[in-house]
Amino acid sequence: MNIFRLAGDVSHLVAILILLMKIWRSKSCAGISGRSQVLFALVFTTRYLDLFTVYISAYNTVMKVVFLALSYATVYLIYMRFRNSYDSENDTFRVEFLLIPVIGLSFLENYAFTPLEILWTFSIFLESVAIMPQLFMITKTGEAESITTHYLFFLGLYRALYIANWVWRYHTEGFYDQIAIVSGVVQTIFYCDFFYLYVTRGEEIRTPS
């Protein structure tokens, strides 16, 4: 564990909590892409299957349970509890355009052709594109509420910090995970455009529609 990874995990947790609290407090999921949240729940489900088979550390186990619980809670709030405020009109990104290439790639590029490894690889590739429906929705509605931009900021920051973590681990322990690094860089690149808007335009973001 290093400071970059810890900061990354904290940033990730903060992002998830920001979104969950926003929906819970405002009793509405307007402007939130339910499709992205379903994809994130799928990412955690396919990545944390080793929760019951491999014990790495208390931190690792606790964080996996927390991420799974919070992501399913978010999906539940969007599609069940506050479904009447779900903006299905604008949440129309074709997720099959993400799932099919990701499934194909995870069968082609993986460390081992075993169910657990392929599902882990699937979750790594899927995570890099899971935010697309949300970014698509923002361009479609032409705006993002300030809290949503904070959510996206911390979500983008988390994977950027993981890149620093991979550089650090490469130099200190010779560790590198090629699939995670390539996918993590792609994921962070998707946020660059948003980071620019977030920094230059402050909280409210209006995308040039």
Binding site: R5, H12, I56, K64, Y111, Y162, Y170, F175, Q178
Partner: peptide, 10 residues
């Protein structure tokens, strides 16, 4: 350098 497959990262 090795591709560690130990999934210790979240």
């Amino acid at each position: 350098l090795q591709d560690s497959h130990l999934k210790d990262e979240l």
